[in-house]
Nucleic acid binder design. Sequence first.
DNA 1: CGGCATAGTGTCCAGCGCACACCCGGGTCA
DNA 2: TGACCCGGGTGTGCGCTGGACACTATGCCG
Lengths: 229, 229
Amino acid sequence: MSHTYEYPRPALTVDCVVFGLDEDDLKVLLIKRGVEPFAGRWALPGGFVRMDESLDEAARRELEEESGIRPAHLEQLYTFGAPGRDPRGRVVTVAYFALVKLTDHRPHAATDAREAAWFSVWDTPKLAFDHAEILGTALQRLKGKVRYQPIGFELLPPKFTLTQLQRLYEIVLERPLDKRNFRKKILAMDLLEELDEVEQDVSHRAARLYRFDHRKYKQLEKAGFNFEL
Amino acid sequence: MSHTYEYPRPALTVDCVVFGLDEDDLKVLLIKRGVEPFAGRWALPGGFVRMDESLDEAARRELEEESGIRPAHLEQLYTFGAPGRDPRGRVVTVAYFALVKLTDHRPHAATDAREAAWFSVWDTPKLAFDHAEILGTALQRLKGKVRYQPIGFELLPPKFTLTQLQRLYEIVLERPLDKRNFRKKILAMDLLEELDEVEQDVSHRAARLYRFDHRKYKQLEKAGFNFEL
DNA sequence: CGGCATAGTGTCCAGCGCACACCCGGGTCA
DNA sequence: TGACCCGGGTGTGCGCTGGACACTATGCCG
């Protein structure tokens, strides 16, 4: 059966859907393609998997090469392999899903020559390949996952106010939440560390800052605790 | 950049984790390998992706070739691509997750020469490659998914009793459920069609048979209804 | 006809989700 | 310096749901 290995092989790539949160908008990172096919179109960052690296490593490497970003949260999303999804030939792509603190990655130019920019996920330009479908899948995953796993914090700066946190959920879930209920619930989980600091430079009463306690979460998780909304 | 396509490529396979339900046990379909590596070991059914077929098609084709099974439910699970997971070289596999009615696929021999058999998921032989890890991932997915999507029915015959249904959930979730609460909840969803039939050939009071109403579920789903345990 | 094995059925209580409105504190500006 | 403007921060009540819990019904068998 080792002759099976002589079969022609699809090319294998990784593509990353990187989400960031900007005030009142969920953003996705896109790269402007310089070459055909789809030269000039925006696309998800990604590239070919090397023979000696794992898929996760490939995703991290490509992302860093194309944007300088090293995401705090990265997970595999789905693998897209329809014949014809790449006009050059058979290319299968393993899509990844990443969350970053936008404050750490201000709209700076890419490290290599390509152009990188953040777009509102609700209003992207026309994307190359099947990347619009991949983005859609990633959005669904984010919406589903944010409610039962505390990954939303990866989108906020380390210190944040409860209002920021609530807005995050409202943006991702696309529906308003009740302030008092939200605060009650999130504080009841006892996963936030209340800091002796308040936000600065606001022209109204300053809100208290909190920090997510990863350690405590891991403990509670082991004890069978379930994060929810 | 089209020279990128000259890069060496990993080989690409699909592997299927096929679950079936047998009285009081959750089973998984395994195939005995005839050739090296891992000759004589049990493994998940699977094989190489062809250049002209989608990943889903590849999974269905391999599964039918190796076991004759055409699963009612098939979905992509996860893609495993650690270098070294296959001793012959770089092989990336897209794992799939399938549910079948075991009654339709009694422990018959495979259609081609290989040996196929059902094993209890809690007690499998040592598996080839990283297939134990894949199976573990599939089990987790099944456990998670069965609670908020009505896929469990794919494991039962078309007509079933409420007790059978309850046992299914108890087996998958690995915990006992209360009979009255279970019946109350599942019937309240109004997704089961109560038939004018009862089970046959039992030496005690016969239980009423039900059928899952796929049509009604799709309607309710569109209307924003959420199945939940 | 008695016994046995499983089918089938209803209530109560506690905890949670959710709707809902007002005072507080700090900064700004006239 | 005081009035106002802006978001920050807080508690209650109700209805529904999840979960604990035990007995009668039915059909077969010996």
